[in-house]
Amino acid sequence: MQRIIEQTEDGSATLYVPELNEHYHSVKGARTESQHIFIDMGLKASAAPCPHILEAGFGTGLNALLTLQEAERTGRPVRYTGIELYPLAWTEVEALHYSDDPRLRLLHEAPWEEEVCLTPTFRLLKLRRDLTSWQADDERPPLRCDVVYFDAFAPEKQPALWTPAVFRNLYRCLTPGGILTTYCAKGAVRRLMQDIGFRMERLPGPPGGKREILRATKPNDVPENMPELYR
């Protein structure tokens, strides 16, 4: 797919995909959006002392970089797993000029299918998978996480990524009390996740951007007699 660099309102850049008529980040501010939705409303809201984060859509690596920087700032160690079927080349990411931090390049040049320690507080595993068919239990060992960054393209652009099957898999993947954050606040998405078993919150969106975002929490008290699919 063709990708075009566009500037956003906070001065940071994003990629535009003409084929989908879709941007990788909000045109109101790429960095502002990622910081608010995934770091402030996701990582910081997790009570896990050493959170394992799963990102659905590794993309430009901006979410991973901000997470790495937050882990370094606080000293709170993070394991980070990114799932991406169509990885970006480093040359595409470099042209965005997101950061002078040399670790952004390390994130992209790290090997796939191999967990690596990039800093004393950040471990990275990149999986080249199709989220529509991927199952957390098929990994060895089965993948379990405390936080999900759900950063897929919008439901009207890629509806196959916003289905009950995908969110059931993520629900199963999350530890009790685990959370999922996403920029999408559509009622249909909120009801879908609620029907699966998530406790849903509508939160204020990023400054100057979307009015609301969603945060979903897997209950701590999932009944033992619930179907295995939902545990």
Rank of each mutant, 00 (worst) to 15 (best):
I179C: 14
I196N: 02
I213R: 01
C145I: 12
L106Y: 09
F198L: 11
Q158P: 08
R140I: 14
E228N: 07
A48P: 06
R144S: 13
K28P: 01
P223H: 07
L54H: 03
T119S: 10
E228T: 09
D195R: 13
L118M: 12
I213L: 08
L107I: 02
P111W: 05
R215Q: 02
E72D: 15
G208Q: 05
A13K: 08
Y149I: 09
R172F: 01
E33I: 08
V116Y: 04
V166K: 13
T8L: 14
D100Y: 01
E22T: 01
L68C: 00
W90A: 03
T217N: 00
T91G: 09
P204K: 05
P87K: 08
D138T: 15
G178K: 01
P164G: 06
T217W: 02
M193P: 01
A154R: 00
D137S: 14
E6R: 15
K28S: 10
K157N: 11
T60W: 00
A216Q: 01
L20D: 07
R172L: 02
N220A: 13
Y80C: 01
D146I: 12
R140M: 10
A89W: 12
A56Y: 14
G197H: 03
L214R: 00
M1I: 15
K126S: 10
V17R: 08
G209T: 10
F198T: 12
D195F: 02
N225L: 15
L161F: 12
L20Q: 10
N225P: 06
S46L: 07
